[in-house]
Design a protein around this nucleic acid. Structure first.
Lengths: 354, 354
DNA sequence: GAAATCTCTGCAATCGATTGCATTAGTTTC
DNA sequence: GAAACTAATGCAATCGATTGCAGAGATTTC
């Protein structure tokens, strides 16, 4: 069995020093044309691939980023991961994933990843992470390359990329109000999550602006997953006095809710309207097709990854943190209509399912 | 700014050599109790974390596995990735992801990952990868740690983990036949994919066993995604002579199909029955809840990752490749019923939605 | 034509941990 | 009490690439 070829083998073959091989590969303009040709030939013949560990050790970079997610299984995150991976690969970086990242030791885990020189930067997508854990990281040495996504901490010293959650939630709620609904409920996200708070705030703002009452028994617990949406739907059915419309903090919750109320014989949108948040691929394929706030997931991942790599490579050296906010878009489909009392027909889709 | 502490710093603090620190950390039994205590204390005080690059360089291991997927955005794969990540993390390995892996240069990409010492092993989940690309890899040096999932190459020298696709497809089709269907169509997976072939073979086998005809115009093109399922549904609607039931090669295809035929006014299961494959989380929440073959996704990821790490660590040194086959389970929900001609009612769910 | 400059290349140190071998001290065996 | 062993530790080489520095020629400047 042959050993894997090293830069020494290439150097020997090309009759040059290892220094020259290294330069021929990483800064070709510093090497004469003829030498460069001999080196490329030697690389080809030996089948040489640089050893990343050796390079990392010397250069103190890993050419890898860490993506910390609360739940890869959730299609919302997996699509984002898709665009992150594409952007990172294009710029020559590997993508290491850490799932279910929040928790007591998350700060230590992040620190270990950085200090062990496994990753050069961190993309944090977990809205439930403790702020102080992060501060611990950014404090000590130089500020670590870190982009926080889906999170809003204007005063904290990190760059952030996010969607306009609060405004988007307000917009979604206003859509229901515009249709004539006055009795509107909300399915929350998981407790302790920033997104939950922001979306609830947007909901509250729209309700207040319209002079509508927020009833505690119409605020349903949720967890951003279908099962909790289903449970919310069952709780909804148990009410004697029900809202005519519901704004769910995400599409999975809305879909779970839909399946529960339909099981009990209710028709959407005739008996109850629902608007979701995210616009998952599935959302246009369920019945009725879901009205929802579309988050620019592809852009979110691409921009976050791009910005992180810029920071890592020092192309973005501003001391002041950037806050990038992407806007969402209301996609009206079949799950929202005028309330039953008004007796009008379902709203026709304004934006067709793609 | 302090530099990150190295093993030298720990050694100095504990008044021992770096060799002793290294041993105290990786094989504590070789170090006296008192020294061990001094070292741990020094580690604590300095905040030392071993540099992974240096360790990788010396030991020629990366403690990282590469997961190659065709599409992370697909919930089927993202759930598997979830369990892979959990298992790998538990055993101290990082998970690097490579998305959209198949393609002309996939062989070179794999080779580079291995030879650059970035990863110790590869978990391959892409059914469309060229076999010869793989052979190229396993041939040269020692057989590379590689587990092929979702693929069947009995003669090739790799370990494999898969579900019993052909048998499961046969079982799904037989379910339709048992309900009384005689006119049955199939939505294929993407062309050139092993899974597509296996599932189609199972379908064909069940049809043949029942003496039923496979009609070319009832075999719909698909791509394992909702949009192609939707297109299949539209093609279905254009037929003048339609099947009464359809077996889709996966759930996404089935869901897309459902949304298309419903849009055209057909009712499932009254007018057409459909059975899917995978049992995605969403499948029990669409309407009607989807009858499907459940793949043990969590187990698949866990077993594949565990086996790969066993191979890497040399705990599994059998020269003969293992072929692990996991079995699928028929989950009967609301999307299948007796054919319209027989006029009987929908089959009641036998296995409740979880 | 001497000095200055530029281009190309090699030498050797360096990154931080691991590990084979040697050494010392302490213990057991006969 | 000498030989043989064991346990604990240190020395120094090693993994494979990168890079500061210096030197050898070649070319330009005045």
């Amino acid at each position: 069995m042959k050993k894997t070829p090293t830069i020494q083998d290439v150097a020997r073959f090309a009759h040059v020093s290892t220094a020259t091989v290294s330069r021929a590969l990483s800064s070709p303009e510093r090497v004469s044309e003829s030498t460069r040709a001999r080196v490329s030939e030697a690389v080809r013949v030996t089948g040489y691939t640089p050893n990343q560990s050796a390079r990392s050790l010397r250069q103190r970079t890993a050419r890898t980023i860490l993506v910390a997610l609360p739940d890869i299984g959730n299609p919302f995150f997996s699509t984002i991961l898709d665009s992150i991976e594409r952007e990172a690969t294009m710029r020559g970086y590997g993508v290491l994933v850490a799932n279910r990242f929040s928790g007591a030791d998350s700060g230590r885990r992040m620190r270990d990843y950085f200090m062990s020189n496994r990753v050069d930067g961190l993309l944090l997508f977990d809205g439930s992470l403790d702020l102080s854990q992060l501060m611990m990281l950014t404090g000590e040495p130089a500020p670590l390359p870190l982009i926080v996504a889906c999170e809003e901490i204007p005063t904290a010293p990190f760059h952030t990329v996010k969607t306009d959650n609060s405004y988007a939630a307000e917009r979604a709620t206003r859509h229901l109000i515009d249709l004539g609904h006055r009795r509107i409920g909300h399915i929350r996200g998981p407790a302790g999550n920033v997104l939950t708070l922001e979306r609830e705030a947007g909901f509250a703002k729209a309700m207040a602006a319209a002079g509508l009452e927020i009833r505690a028994d119409w605020m349903f617990a949720g967890g951003f997953d279908m099962d909790s949406g289903h449970a919310a739907g069952q709780n909804f059915m148990r009410l004697t006095d029900r809202p005519t419309a519901v704004f769910a903090a995400n599409d999975e919750g809305a879909i779970g809710f839909l399946s529960a109320v339909r099981q009990q014989g209710l028709d959407c949108p005739r008996d109850v309207s629902i608007v979701g948040f995210d616009d998952l691929a599935i959302s246009s394929h369920v019945w009725p097709p879901l009205t929802t706030m579309r988050q620019p997931r592809e852009a979110l991942g691409r921009i976050a990854a791009g910005a992180l790599i810029d920071v890592i490579e020092g192309q973005r050296r501003s001391r002041v943190p950037m806050h990038m906010v992407l806007s969402s878009e209301l996609i009206i489909r079949g799950s929202t209509a005028c309330p039953p009392a008004l007796g009008r027909s379902a709203s026709s889709p304004v934006v067709a399912a793609e």
